[in-house]
Design a protein around this nucleic acid. Sequence first.
DNA 1: CAGTATCCACATCGATACTG
DNA 2: CAGTATCGATGTGGATACTG
Lengths: 111, 111
Amino acid sequence: MAVSKKEISACPIDAMLSVIDGRWKGTILWRLSEGPMRTSELHRTIPGITQRMLIRHLHELVQDGILERHQERSTPPCVRYSISKYGLTLLPVLEEICTWGRKHLALQAAG
Amino acid sequence: MAVSKKEISACPIDAMLSVIDGRWKGTILWRLSEGPMRTSELHRTIPGITQRMLIRHLHELVQDGILERHQERSTPPCVRYSISKYGLTLLPVLEEICTWGRKHLALQAAG
DNA sequence: CAGTATCCACATCGATACTG
DNA sequence: CAGTATCGATGTGGATACTG
């Protein structure tokens, strides 16, 4: 869109959507809601995602305060991502979204 | 995105987001939650939206069953849009999204 | 392993002009 | 007034190769 959702927007709905908007962010949060994970682990368990998009989305989520990045200084490097305390406040909302979405899919299937 | 959110997706979150995704859909639903409105009325009260995008989003929302379109056969034509019974089930979720978004904006403003 | 750099494809959106 | 058609801009994501 011409006005990127990344811009500062006065609309609270857009503000929230901008955080979870992105092809894979929902899936990423879903996986991480089960516990911290390494980058490569996420990469393996999310079919179809490219490394570029994975890293990109992870960093954006960190930027927004939703995720935390823990790096163990070692060779080769080991980075773990987890949902931050702030990110936890997002999960109930995602649940609601998911619930509605499930019903919507069921209705679509029914015709 | 390459895989359009309009595609049939097995992910409930994407399913819900695809319904409200679109530069202006949040705002449109917001306005219509206060009551039915004519196309021109919406056009006037949503600053910056073009006629094309307004109509486009309205029709998509009708397609998804969220809105209802009432046409009075007259010259010139008079069309009113309102939130459908099904669309009403979406509003509480939008409220949740909005609430979280408001807090998020407040935090951003705080730094 | 984690992350970056390029390059490209495509969907969405905006501007404008037009129709019934 | 409600809606369509056309065209161009651009943002987002994908493929691939590369670095520390």
